[in-house]
């Protein structure tokens, strides 16, 4: 595991993609996580594995302030404690049944997760708002080659022909893919946002073409 990375905030999703009462899968370098937002709007992140039978918790369901596993309905609090085992309704689950949780923060419309306890707050990108996230089957070097800019993890600005200058936030995945969050200037209108989305799609095609060529021996 990349231990030097665990105390930093990683942008795993956009706030707009996780409405209240829903769960979704995400990844950090320490593995897959279940990200969920309670009915009252509170965010939580846990290991994407129910300790009972190993089912992915991101397939589960949110009722009120708790996340339940889709397999047997075992229910967990935001702090990861098992609250309920439906097969034994009168049982109070022992404290020892818990799912590992992660630190999670929301800033500027982006959901940040850390495997450890980072000191500061996640960064803000003044003047930009999140547009969409997309996964690219290419690593940082192909992305740098495609944009002509160093694909720095703290983000970089790229201008495609016919589109507004967009800010890209690349997140390397342990699969070799890169999750990219696309941010646009806050004053962009609908047509500029659509153009920025299409520019990001073009960039993905370019980067994947470069990656595929590099992969040829």
């Amino acid at each position: 595991m990349l231990s030097d990375k665990t105390d930093t905030w990683v942008p795993v999703a956009l706030s707009q993609d996780l409405p209240t009462g829903q769960a979704m899968p995400a990844r950090t370098l320490a593995g897959p996580i279940a990200l969920w937002r309670s009915q009252s709007g509170r965010l939580a992140a846990s290991a994407d594995r129910c300790p009972h039978r190993g089912m992915r918790l991101s397939h589960g369901f949110v009722r009120g302030e708790a996340l339940s596993c889709i397999y047997h309905g075992w229910t967990y609090s935001q702090a990861g404690r098992c609250l309920r085992i439906p097969a034994h309704p009168s049982l109070t689950p022992p404290e020892t049944i818990r799912v590992a949780t992660r630190s999670v923060e929301e800033a500027g419309g982006i959901v940040w997760v850390a495997d450890g306890e980072p000191d500061g707050k996640p960064p803000l990108f003044e003047g930009y708002v999140p547009l969409r996230s997309l996964t690219v089957r290419a690593g940082g070097s192909a992305l740098s080659a495609a944009t002509g800019t160093k694909a720095a993890v703290e983000g970089f600005v790229w201008r495609a022909p016919g589109a507004p200058a967009i800010r890209l936030l690349p997140v390397p995945q342990e699969t070799g893919e890169t999750l990219i969050h696309v941010l646009v200037p806050a004053d962009c209108g609908v047509s500029e946002r659509v153009a920025a989305s299409r520019a990001a799609e073009s960039l993905r095609r370019m980067a994947e073409r470069i990656e595929a060529k590099e992969a040829v021996p």
């Binding site: 009462g21 949110v62 708790a66 689950p93």
Partner: peptide, 14 residues
């Protein structure tokens, strides 16, 4: 699968 969250929790958590 069914969206179980569309139905309320049958009993309160202990």
């Amino acid at each position: 699968h069914r969206l179980h969250e569309l139905k309320p929790e049958p009993r309160p958590c202990p």
